[in-house]
């Protein structure tokens, strides 16, 4: 196993009504995926300010996948606001020379097992390739 301090950690912000049960469904199917993934249950990722993402990278998180409900979001208008925010985060990341591929906005439903696994594996391939984020 990779020594824990070098682990390239992926933070997954998974919505309570779609992606989190989606991740449960992947577990129920006993499909394996990389261990460096830490899933946090969120009501709606629209609550996180730009700084939250930058702070995560600063703290040593290598990649963040926002697994939202997409257009199925139970909070009308939240997805649009979230997409706008993520664009703003990308601008800030560019300014700090952070590879914007480290942050990904996706939509995962309660039974989107394949999509979940694909996103996680893609992000893992990326963070293994580009390593830990370097920030001042």
């Amino acid at each position: 196993m990779e020594s824990p301090d070098k682990e390239k950690k992926i933070l997954i912000l998974a919505t309570d009504s779609c992606a989190y049960p989606g991740a449960d469904s992947v577990g129920q199917a006993h499909s394996s995926y990389p261990a460096n993934t830490y899933i946090l249950r969120v009501r709606a990722p629209v609550m996180f300010p730009e700084q939250f993402y930058l702070d995560c990278f600063k703290k040593g998180i290598s990649g963040i996948i926002i697994m939202s409900c997409g257009e199925e979001c139970p909070y009308e208008g939240a997805y649009k606001a979230l997409a706008t925010r993520i664009d703003a985060v990308y601008q800030l990341m560019k300014k700090q020379d952070l590879d914007i591929r480290r942050l990904r906005l996706t939509a995962i439903c309660t039974v989107c097992n394949r999509a979940f696994l694909k996103e996680v594996n893609l992000m893992n391939d990326l963070v293994q390739e580009i390593g830990l984020p370097e920030m001042d």
């Binding site: 009501r43 609550m47 996180f48 300010p49 939250f52």
Partner: peptide, 27 residues
């Protein structure tokens, strides 16, 4: 939903039970 939480410049508003502070502590 917490849409308000993200935009407060003085972090005066938060979500009961799912606060930004709690997420920061988790990370």
């Amino acid at each position: 939903c917490g849409a308000c939480v993200a935009v407060c410049p003085s972090r005066a508003i938060d979500l009961k039970g799912w606060s930004l502070k709690q997420y920061e502590a988790m990370v």
